[in-house]
Nucleic acid binder design. Sequence first.
DNA 1: TACACTTGTCTAGATCAATAGACATTTGAG
DNA 2: CTCAAATGTCTATTGATCTAGACAAGTGTA
Lengths: 245, 245
Amino acid sequence: MAIRKVVERQTGVALWRQIADRIRLAISNGDYDAAGMVPPETVLAGEFGVNRHTVRSALAALAEEGLVRAVQGRGTMIERKERVSYPISRRTRFSQGLGRQVKEIGTRLLGHAGISASGEIATSLGIAPGDPVIELRTVSSGDGRPLSVSSSYYPAARFPRMAEEFEQLHSVTKAFAAHGLDDYVRVSTEIVARHADGDELAKLKLSAGAIVLETHSINADLDGRPVEYSRSCFAADRMKLKIET
Amino acid sequence: MAIRKVVERQTGVALWRQIADRIRLAISNGDYDAAGMVPPETVLAGEFGVNRHTVRSALAALAEEGLVRAVQGRGTMIERKERVSYPISRRTRFSQGLGRQVKEIGTRLLGHAGISASGEIATSLGIAPGDPVIELRTVSSGDGRPLSVSSSYYPAARFPRMAEEFEQLHSVTKAFAAHGLDDYVRVSTEIVARHADGDELAKLKLSAGAIVLETHSINADLDGRPVEYSRSCFAADRMKLKIET
DNA sequence: TACACTTGTCTAGATCAATAGACATTTGAG
DNA sequence: CTCAAATGTCTATTGATCTAGACAAGTGTA
């Protein structure tokens, strides 16, 4: 059959990258599960209507990501296909949600700072502009692959030891508990998608041109008072967000 | 000051496109609101560390999108900056949610078909593989700009006249009501981000390399029986998703 | 072993992306 | 009016991307 899959020229996105993105999507959709392999280069070249060399560039990029492995004479095998599902609900907790999908979860503290709340941070936390907040910058990984980078903000008046507690306990939930807050719920989450900037590419170990899902979320205590405002960037080709309502 | 904003070379994404994406983001973040204009080409070229011609290519792409307008001698003015917020909650209804953000909302039926349920459709609707479902393909616009394309699936046994009713009433909620279903709720929504394919680029009138937010959502009646499974693609640079939990 | 099929490598040429510099044209302020 | 500042247009050059074709080398099957 050889359905012609459309790629566009002169758009500022190289053909090999468009094709790499399409193949990555097909792998993660399970389109090639039957064989466990990507179709031969000549077949892909035919489907996309490009030269075989262009397909090879795309496959080389995916091999660089560790997604596929080419073996001369046999073909190109799929090494990894999963896209981790991150559940968002009233009881969103980072490590719990990923649960069985990844064996080993790590959240590393990149840095922390005491700053004064500006526009969106103050609004989201329901405090006055200029009030002190504590900022935690973290990167989270699953099985060694970075999944997200976050900046989280906490009202310093209520959670003065947030940075130190988090450093010790490696958990926001436990750091809240150390301040006497036993429970909290997700109030709202905003989601946008965009291209990753240079800093995110480095921290998430992405190849440039990659997409991130950026979320702005607010957690509140059971009385509805905001306790955390958080901006996270998820590597879009490794994650999906699952909203439970 | 002239902070060096990072763009990466040899990544398969042209510099002018990376820069266009960054400027679009800055506009939508309101970074240039004070002046109502984009900084001069020479300044942008300095910030990004590229030639002025490269910046001009980026601005030309944004002008093509209708986001900015350049005037010789004056500068490049911002024409449009909003990103429509689409709320997702238990009571998600397309047109209600957009409400005051856009004046005029339209959902156009691209086509419909009677098909038999395959894997994900059957699973999501809780019916047997091979059972008949009705597929509606639609494109939704706000103030003339296309915002999303969707394929929605309904169990034909329960909603046999879905296509005809929708065609008449231009509303899923009303078409459900015509079948005797007065209320339904959003059960789950999965969100991934990826590059748009050729078909989506055309239907959403995007410039290639653009990003879409793809959602897979399930709506159910008040007894928890699924009534709709829907796959939607939102133009990521025009929309954000707001989750209320 | 012989063969079909696959990936790996090389060369050469065409087109696109980016840089560099020069100069024209328009606008708004003094 | 005069001038500075901004966008518009042109030429030339370099490097990246894509195409085209040929052949080498590894794999699995008959």
